[in-house]
Computed example of a mutant assay.
Amino acid sequence: MNTQSDLEWIPCTGIQLRKAGVQFDAVRVDGVRGRALADRLARMTGGAPGPIVEEANGRRAVYFLVPVGSTCHRAWPDGVTRLTAAANRISYIPVPALNGCTWPLTWRYRPTADGHLVHARLLRAALHSAE
């Protein structure tokens, strides 16, 4: 996608925080492990894993945008953070624009016009196959 997406949750410029549980939830995996997982997932899906955001500083987090509620009722390995909405819990997910200055966030794998998100069960399978 080379132009601004029709997906209204993507900011036109810069970075915005999106509340989990509205358009999507997220799974965060930090550092080299997260980047390797993103690339493994891309290989498993023929290069179309769904939208994945990466952070260039701090813990170097990688955010996998998954369907709302898809991480519930599943065991996730240590080092994985679920960003979801639940009773007495609010999480926010950083989302960069498609173009322009968005440092320290970038799209490792850009969203597609059809709104396809990362498949949570496939993500879990990729996580477990790496261990």
Rank of each mutant, 00 (worst) to 15 (best):
G31Q: 05
D6V: 00
A36K: 08
A42H: 01
A20T: 07
G14C: 14
Q16L: 07
A36G: 07
V80I: 07
A20G: 14
P77L: 03
A20W: 15
Q23D: 12
N57V: 13
Q23I: 01
R18Q: 09
Q4D: 07
D78Q: 15
I52T: 09
I10W: 09
E8I: 14
R60V: 05
C12R: 12
E54Y: 06
E54F: 08
S70H: 03
F24C: 01
M44A: 01
A48K: 05
A38W: 05
T13F: 11
G79N: 13
A20L: 11
E8V: 11
D6T: 02
A75L: 07
G50K: 03
Q4W: 08
T13A: 15
D25K: 03
A38D: 02
Q4N: 10
P77S: 03
M44P: 00
V53L: 02
R60E: 11
Q4P: 08
V53T: 00
W76I: 02
G14H: 11
R43L: 12
V62N: 04
T13L: 11
E55H: 15
V62D: 07
V27E: 04
Q16K: 06
A75Q: 10
D78E: 14
K19T: 15
A20D: 12
R28Y: 02
E54P: 00
R28M: 06
K19A: 14
P51K: 00
G14V: 09
P67G: 09
R74E: 12
A75H: 12
V53S: 04
V27W: 11
F24P: 03
A61S: 15
I15Q: 13
H73A: 10
A56E: 13
G46L: 01
V32P: 06
A36H: 08
Y63S: 09
P11C: 07
L7Y: 01
V29K: 05
G14F: 10
I15A: 04
G21H: 12
R59W: 02
P51T: 00
D6E: 10
G47K: 00
